[in-house]
Design a protein around this nucleic acid. Structure first.
Lengths: 192, 192
DNA sequence: TTGAATTATGGTCAAATGACCAAGTTTTTA
DNA sequence: TAAAAACTTGGTCATTTGACCATAATTCAA
């Protein structure tokens, strides 16, 4: 049993021991090296992913080949390509490790089984879904209405702990601006 | 009974007559004039909204006062400020009519009651939630990675029927570009 | 139906942004 | 530990974009 996994589910969802055990028994534990890929666009997203240690990114690649990051996924968070997972169709996003990481994986059928067996898991899933909806809505609103400076402010206040773990070019890829613009913002903030 | 509402639920969700009837009995029917507001940022979103006729927009206003449109809501679609509705807290978005419209409204408690009484409604809600998640994800990806031209192409192909019903400045406000840029794109497309 | 409001387009100019390149620093990995 | 890779910052320049303004066409509302 991974202690990170156990303590996360106890603290955040108040799961009884037996549920955690049952989940863990069906999980695949996987270790990822820095930059190792977990899902490539075009492949089917076969697993629901819990990040126990490390940091992943979920991204798309534009026509010119550069990355645009949809989500950073640090320890104690979940990720997947929803549409691909739900319908078992090819994914449009990529998932890869930024830091060396440890993840738990469940196939869709295994996770569905767990959700039926343990209503508390179904309930917790729905909370996670809500959160992700709120987050995506905020993301759309910010991306549309905020200036680059405001986006950076927003990022810094929302994810202060990620700031030091990420290379700037990835923060720029998340904010939807060039690295140059980001360093310009940081430069101008020094003189204030 | 509004025939639009009835035929929507029969066609799209295969609801039995009695469910539709029960829903309609708890609904508030409201007529909106062009530009009339249904929800203002700061107020609590008390209702789940079904658009039976017309066209609404859901938008936020940036610091400089200009609109950024999150969603167009034509007839036979649903809308609300989710986070405000779920938690009955002040909304961050506004909802207003673009065309004269007719909407059905349910309070959260009434809708919850309906969802408990009729499992088919709960099931249908979950489909709608999934769709909205996919849509939001696509929106974030497009907003980040597409050029203005590509965003316009995407809009035209995804919402061909809305194109002629919307003033260009609203399409620009949806795409996150200025009206000027949008007319420039359209101009350059003429010469091709 | 007619006056008022809204809308679409275009011109000009300043500002913001990205592409490309280079250099010094830090981190990774063999 | 040492070489290689990745990262941060900065410079320059061309391009894109937005702000502001004006005008003609269209649509709305009394």
């Amino acid at each position: 049993m991974l202690p990170e996994f156990e303590s996360y589910l106890k603290k955040n969802a108040d799961f009884p021991e037996e549920v955690i055990k049952a989940m863990y028994d069906l999980a695949i534990v996987k270790t990822l090296k820095r930059n190792e890929s977990l899902l490539q666009a075009g492949d089917v997203c076969r697993y629901k992913v819990f990040i126990a240690k490390g940091l992943l990114r979920c991204y798309v690649t534009g026509g010119n080949g550069n990355e645009h990051i949809l989500q950073f996924c640090p320890e104690n968070s979940w990720t997947l390509d929803v549409e691909s997972y739900d319908n078992q169709i090819p994914a449009t996003t990529n998932i890869a490790a930024i830091e060396p990481s440890v993840v738990l994986l469940w196939t869709k059928s295994d996770f569905e089984k767990l959700r039926i067996d343990f209503p508390i898991l179904k309930q917790f899933s729905e909370i996670l879904i809500s959160r992700s909806i709120y987050q995506n809505r905020h993301r759309v609103a910010t991306t549309l209405s905020a200036t680059p400076e405001e986006k950076y402010e927003d990022f810094v206040t929302r994810y202060p702990n990620l700031l030091s773990r990420l290379p700037l070019h990835m923060i720029a890829a998340y904010m939807g601006i060039s690295l140059k613009t980001l360093t310009r913002i940081r430069h101008s903030q020094l003189n204030r």
